[in-house]
Amino acid sequence: MFDLNSRYSAIETAQLTLPDGRIVAYKRRRFLPQGRELPLLAEVTVVDGDRLDLISDRTLGNPLLFWRVCDANDAMQPRQLTQEPNQTLKVPVPQV
């Protein structure tokens, strides 16, 4: 259902039976990890014009893993991580 690089790929799929008998599949809730508990791969400094996909491509080798940088920095609003140049962002070791 989800690509292996997706933040939802490891989340359990559940089913709900509706009153009319239809079965609906859904992913259970994903709880955000505590960034301070994730093993650190690197720290990067945001430069003017940087984007999370570019940062994750440079550090993790895949632009679709931007969500891992968000998790490591406890970010609920990803764009805020790159709004201000010279911020330091944590990049976690990819977890399976």
Rank of each mutant, 00 (worst) to 15 (best):
F2E: 11
D3G: 02
N5Q: 10
N5R: 12
N5H: 11
S6C: 09
S6N: 07
S6G: 05
R7Q: 14
R7Y: 13
S9Q: 10
S9Y: 13
A10F: 14
I11Y: 02
E12H: 11
E12V: 12
T13R: 10
Q15S: 14
Q15T: 14
L16K: 10
L16R: 12
P19G: 06
P19I: 03
D20C: 08
G21C: 09
G21Y: 08
V24Y: 10
V24I: 13
R30L: 14
R30E: 10
F31Q: 14
F31L: 15
F31R: 15
L32R: 15
Q34P: 11
Q34C: 14
G35F: 02
R36P: 14
P39G: 06
P39V: 07
L41N: 05
L41T: 03
A42M: 07
E43F: 02
E43V: 07
E43L: 06
V44Y: 07
T45G: 03
D48Q: 15
D48W: 12
G49M: 08
R51V: 12
L52N: 04
L52W: 04
L52A: 03
D53A: 03
D53K: 01
L54Y: 09
I55L: 01
I55G: 00
S56E: 01
S56Y: 01
D57K: 08
D57G: 06
D57Y: 06
R58K: 10
T59V: 10
L60V: 03
L60Y: 05
G61S: 01
P63D: 02
L64H: 08
L65T: 00
L65C: 05
R68E: 06
R68M: 11
V69H: 01
C70G: 03
D71C: 04
A72V: 07
N73I: 00
D74L: 04
A75M: 05
A75F: 01
Q77H: 13
R79D: 11
Q80K: 15
L81P: 05
E84I: 13
P85D: 07
P85Q: 08
N86M: 14
Q87D: 06
Q87G: 00
Q87M: 09
K90D: 05
V91L: 02
V91N: 01
P92G: 01
P94T: 02
V96N: 14
V96G: 15
